[in-house]
Design a protein around this nucleic acid. Structure first.
Lengths: 336, 336
DNA sequence: GTGAAAGCGCTAACAA
DNA sequence: TTGTTAGCGCTTTCAC
């Protein structure tokens, strides 16, 4: 518990109110009729002692914790914050707390998360290993997966929400191709431990697929990958452009990467959107601040949030996991 | 508990290993000598069942939860994400989980947070009411306050960390004044429920104080306040500029607000930094993306993170709260 | 070396 | 209407 001083318990309340502990429970949970005077004495004692029922003890008895955990790769990414905000907006009145946690790729992390006991866990991660996801599911906690990528062995043991990444990235390629762009590149994520996208990643996969459908041959030159940081990406991409890499369209895995690539392109004299068009993902505040303002794929955060919570409701009611497919929307601004 | 399926308990492990439950505890906590063969059988059973001790039950017995909660106003703010990342980096190996939660200004929120039982709670909020802070402290959980503002009634019952806001904002004013700027404005926060800064807010306070020290008379015109959203701020500030408000220096409460104000200023033909210089707070990624690149006050996130964790260590060891004052650093870029 | 048993704060079935 | 009691999963004392 690690409380620093002793918190009052139900016993203290019962004593002060001169009733049995059960009565206190009944009053607080409001699930039994209790004589009016006793009820009032209990409530008064609660007030006086500033008593709050210990959620952890209730959870031990099989009740809800009212706490949902959102695990992501990058907690300082605006997108996750906004999504959690949406979830919070919807579920707060129902009494839920939703907290955001950065995922770690090891067993200690998994153990900690499982053993802390949440009502539900949402996982939106590209780098979190599938075996860890499975371990969490196996622990019995309801899991909602944001399908940034495909999983082999999860099956229908978790809810799955497709956020629209796939149609989003396809729309990007289609738009650029429709403008007659011939040298479209995809900016993959930066990663300090060299975990780059594979074909089970929906953005990457969608890009490759749609490029081919639009009649392009996809080569190494169409995927900008391998950098450890955005600074490295900036320098590296810049160098490649200077060395003659032809690019007239850029699709960034997120807005930040798109911006970095755009900045690099402009720094070697390319005009946006005349020489090169740029599109990001997430439609973050950044898009409107920079110049030229960035076109971006907007994932429908309110819908995603609602579907996540809906999935948990289903699962907590014992109705099993759900699967849902949402659409993303390309928002055009000055960069295309 | 709301587990969706039944998680294995210590009892299951004991049965499978053919030992008593106590032995399982001894092995897992590593606090008693256990015969080698039994120890091995236990570990094997743990592996087989994928058993994870229930942290919540341990917490009930007075042990740590290994979970620290960070409460902020705005979870999609890059600053908090980065700060929590820093904390995570330092404390992860010690076994701590740090999750980020948006604060709500009501009693239900306070109750939820208290009753969920954390080892420590960090509060960095400008709008979270002091009485709620006090309630949390009263519950007995160790609290670390990031002193964005002053509190009247907390005293030394919580650790306090001054992040450098005050010297930061003073440095801004000094710099602008030193450039001969005469019409410096402070961009206060936007708020949907009209909770704007008062003099107990260190940024606001520091601005007013330093303006006066620099010999300026501070009027309504020096504080841009009262907007509900950044869009409103943009339109409102723009209008005021068009209507003749004189501004040659802008200090934004954070980078985002500074950017919005800067964009508004540029949209009415003001040149940055020639006609108007702009400084933000937080030194976020945004600063380097926009043009002109934004000068900003960098709070020393690694130091803040370290001090927060250090404070918890103190408090958890029963050594009482600590107080620490850190310095912020003004980073100059193209906007000044 | 090991295990029985008490108890953390709470819920709810059961009895009165 | 109320109280007694068992038990959630765990730690730890105490006795063997």
């Amino acid at each position: 518990m690690a409380t620093y001083r002793k918190a009052p318990t139900r016993k203290d309340v019962a004593q002060l109110a001169g009733v049995s502990e059960t009565i206190v429970s009944y009053v607080l949970n409001n699930n039994r009729y209790v004589a009016k005077d006793k009820r009032e004495r209990v409530l008064e004692a609660v007030r006086q002692l500033q008593y709050r029922p210990n959620n952890i003890a209730r959870a031990l008895k099989g009740k809800r914790t009212n706490h949902i955990l959102f695990i992501c790769d990058n907690i300082s990414n605006e997108y996750f914050g906004r999504l959690v905000e949406e979830m919070d907006r919807i579920s707060y009145e129902k009494g839920f707390l939703i907290s955001l946690l950065r995922g770690r790729n090891d067993d200690q992390f998994v153990s900690q998360v499982i053993s802390r006991v949440f009502d539900g866990i949402v996982i939106s991660s590209t780098s979190f290993e599938e075996r860890h996801v499975v371990e969490i599911i196996n622990s019995g906690v309801p899991v909602v997966l944001l399908m940034n990528r495909e999983y082999d062995s999860v099956g229908d043991r978790a809810s799955k929400i497709y956020t629209g990444l796939q149609n989003g990235v396809r729309d990007c390629v289609t738009l650029l191709a429709g403008q007659g762009r011939k040298h479209i590149v995809y900016i993959d994520r930066v990663s300090q431990n060299h975990r780059y996208s594979t074909l089970d990643d929906w953005r990457y996969n969608g890009f490759i697929t749609q490029m081919q459908e639009c009649g392009f041959k996809v080569t190494k030159d169409n995927v900008v990958v391998g950098y450890e940081s955005e600074e490295q990406l900036y320098e590296g991409f810049r160098l490649r452009l200077q060395n003659g890499l032809k690019v007239d369209g850029i699709v960034g895995r997120n807005d930040s990467l798109a911006c970095t690539a755009m900045t690099a392109a402009m720094s070697v004299g390319l005009r946006v959107p005349e020489d090169v068009a740029v599109i990001g993902f997430d439609n973050s505040r950044l898009c409107s601040y920079i110049s030229p303002r960035l076109s971006s794929v907007e994932l429908n955060k309110p819908a995603i949030a609602a579907e996540i919570l809906n999935a948990f409701e289903h699962m907590l009611a014992g109705q099993g996991p759900v699967e849902k497919r949402l659409q993303a929307q390309l928002i055009e601004r000055e960069s295309t």
